[in-house]
Design a protein around this nucleic acid. Structure first.
Lengths: 131, 131
DNA sequence: GGTTAATGATACCACACGGGTATCATTCTG
DNA sequence: CAGAATGATACCCGTGTGGTATCATTAACC
């Protein structure tokens, strides 16, 4: 059971780097050593962050990425949703079928409570906290 | 990001069934329909629960499984540890190396806090709660 | 004692996912 | 036009998840 995968980990580091860099744009080449990951892989991550509107991108020579919002407006939850998909701890095995199994439903109710508290926690962590 | 996998889900249902059955032993054949899973697969899960000491097993005709402790002494956390392995949200990418990356460490510190609260929550859910 | 009903132990399989690489296209600067 | 950067895709491989199959072992009952 992993809370975050490597994409999120690397993204958090890259964004932290960018938040501290205080430059108009930061290229992947400038980040990759500090982040500790290969260029192509980091690029793929940055492209996802771009599509999600978390960073904006400048193509061409001298280009790179820049944060699209203030670091305190980018949360760990957003990174997880962008890079790991929707955060459902709780996808019911029974799908569409009406749940006749009371025990399972109690379990799911419990998990839903745990999930909502967990999401509140990851939503409270921002890049500003990390920088 | 799944909190529990299917093994845990089925195990919770099976144990709930057993807790309510109030019989000396319950066989896989008696449980499989209610649990909603094939016999052989449920057997594999029950065998893991047996090795973990959560149930005891009676071989031979008329045998089956029985809970080894009271339902309020079996927690969701125990099932997860038994069937999904150790619950670490937080395995550091850097392994043994000394962490020189301050941002990453802050992240890991945050995650550690989230993890400990999450574990307290799953430790608080027992089979008795589900039955 | 043999049949039958149960678990114990393994081995195997198919698929999805995570993590990562490679390649070509596109855009901007100088 | 050359070079530096991102955009978009396609691919690969190892591992984990979910599940099946098979044979061995044990105990009850006739």
């Amino acid at each position: 059971m992993k809370l975050i995968n490597r994409d999120v980990d690397y993204a958090a580091r890259a964004l932290t780097f960018m938040a501290r860099a205080n430059k108009p744009t930061v290229s992947v080449a400038q980040m990759q050593e500090q982040v500790g990951v290969s260029g192509p892989f980091l690029r793929k991550i940055m492209q996802k962050l771009h599509k999600a509107g978390i960073v904006h991108a400048v193509k061409g020579k001298g280009g790179g990425f820049a944060m699209a919002r203030n670091p305190d407006k980018v949360t760990l939850k957003q990174l997880m949703e962008t890079l790991q998909g929707p955060l459902r701890l709780n996808d019911c095995v029974f799908g569409e079928k009406i749940c006749q199994r009371h025990a399972a439903c109690v379990l799911r109710h419990k998990i839903a409570g745990i999930e909502s508290r967990l999401l509140a926690e990851v939503a409270a962590v921002t890049i500003k906290d990390l920088a």
